[in-house]
Simulated scan of single mutants.
Amino acid sequence: MPSSTRKRGKAAAGFRAAVLLAAAATLLLPLTGCSSLDTTAPSTARAHAATDAGAGAGAGADAKNAFGTVDCRRAKCVALTFDAGPSENSARLLDILKEEKVPATFFLLGKRHIEKYPELVTRMADEGHEVASHTWDHRILTRIEPDEIREELRRPNDAIERLTGRRPTLMRPPQGRTNETVHGICREMGLSEILWSVTAKDYTTDDSALIEKRVLQQVSRDGIILLHDIYPGTVPAVPGIIEALKERGYVLVTVPQLLAPGKAEPGKVYRP
């Protein structure tokens, strides 16, 4: 085996081990920390948007990207999101999304990811996907100092803006761990926090059929699906997930499309 392949394998194994160590805490999110958060549902964001003619025109622009305009007040929408890339699997994922004409939202890591695969970041933006932040080094934001939080958020934003010409307005906190300090810094930096309602726990398995089954068991209208394109079982599961969702009448959208004509507000936390 070439040394470069061994190194990639060790890096992936190390990241997987770190995620697995945190998995027990992460699985408690719906029952503990995040349940006490003041979160905004996509339907609430849409309902609070102005409905006069001027606002309507703006809403169409906000909801429009390379995949067209979607009105999730009428369509049965769901957002497909991917954390912790880009990775060596992301090019194939982008091929699948292009073939299926489906947009996604990518919450990217900086260290060892954005800096390693800059061409994939550019491709994500060029092909109409929403490019957002998952911090620079996946540090748990509730455990570090305010200046360290700012650095974790600033570095990927700077890198993404250099590559795409657009500064991210969305972020996803590692493990979904957030608090009032994080909210305040996000408000200061023009970022909204995006959580999720569906997780395949793909960090625990390489079984693509199981990943697909878990997603489809949990999904409902306005859902935000959390997947990780860094794991080998995830990308092969995506075609089946997309096909099944379309058969059920879902329209797959980016997170901004899901909220439109509402718009994610800095410092707020969004979760179905």
Rank of each mutant, 00 (worst) to 15 (best):
E265D: 11
K213G: 00
T199Q: 01
S220Q: 11
G184D: 13
T5H: 10
T32R: 13
A12H: 08
T234H: 07
G233P: 06
A63W: 02
L109H: 09
E247T: 12
G165I: 12
L109W: 06
S208C: 07
A159K: 14
S4D: 10
G56L: 12
A63C: 09
G176V: 02
R73W: 08
E119N: 13
D229S: 06
P174M: 12
G267L: 07
Q257E: 08
S220F: 02
P103I: 09
A55F: 00
G267W: 05
S192H: 04
A244P: 02
L20R: 13
T142L: 09
L170Y: 04
F82L: 11
K268F: 09
I96N: 07
I225R: 07
L216H: 04
A53M: 03
A66R: 13
N65Q: 07
R139C: 00
E148R: 13
Y117L: 07
A18L: 15
T40I: 14
T178M: 14
G223E: 00
V182F: 10
E193R: 02
K7I: 15
T51I: 06
R162W: 03
P146A: 09
P146R: 08
L37P: 01
G56N: 08
H129R: 04
A12T: 09
L195P: 01
F107D: 02
V269N: 03
M124E: 15
V131D: 06
A264W: 11
A24E: 12
T51L: 05
R6P: 03
K76L: 08
V198H: 06
E145D: 12
G233H: 10
V102G: 03
L109T: 15
H113G: 04
T69C: 05
R6G: 03
P2Q: 10
T234M: 09
T181G: 06
T181Q: 13
K64M: 08
N179F: 08
K111H: 14
E88H: 14
R139Q: 14
A24M: 10
H134E: 11
D52I: 03
H48C: 05
L216Y: 03
D202I: 07
G14V: 07
R166Y: 07
R150K: 15
G128K: 04
K246I: 03
R16E: 13
Y117G: 05
A260T: 06
W136D: 07
R162S: 15
L120W: 09
L227S: 02
V131S: 02
D206T: 14
K7Q: 13
T199G: 04
P256S: 09
V131T: 08
K111N: 11
A22E: 14
A61Q: 11
F106L: 14
G223L: 05
G60M: 12
G176Q: 01
A200Y: 08
V235F: 02
G14K: 04
R16W: 07
L153K: 01
P173D: 11
A55M: 01
L108D: 00
A260P: 03
Q218D: 01
A41T: 11
A25C: 05
G110S: 12
G110M: 14
D71E: 14
